[in-house]
């Protein structure tokens, strides 16, 4: 499941980050910030307008990611197959 589609408050584990196009700087930055396979993440809140951006917790850090950015992160949500 894409992180941007994850339900609010659910715990999930990062599977991979995919490049939206070759040499995607946004995907690279996400990996630098710790979005790598095996990291637990949680969608804490959604922005007030159109549910964008998303507040993502990874470790003890919170990041605001736009939906299009979070869509690059593939996650496995706990309790969902």
């Amino acid at each position: 499941m894409r992180l941007s589609d994850a339900p609010k408050g659910a715990n999930a584990v990062v599977q991979s980050v995919s490049d939206a196009h070759p040499a995607d700087p946004i995907a690279q930055r996400l990996r630098d910030l710790g979005f790598v396979a095996g990291e637990p993440v949680r969608l804490v809140a959604r922005g007030p307008l159109g549910g964008d951006p998303l507040l993502i917790q990874i470790g003890s850090t919170r990041f605001a990611l736009r939906k299009s950015e979070a869509a690059r992160v593939d996650v496995l949500v706990d309790g969902a197959a």
């Binding site: 946004i26 930055r29 996400l30 910030l33 990041f63 605001a64 736009r66």
Partner: peptide, 9 residues
């Protein structure tokens, strides 16, 4: 092309 946000709170 796409603009990035990615901001730490």
């Amino acid at each position: 092309s796409e603009h990035a946000l990615i901001m730490e709170l």
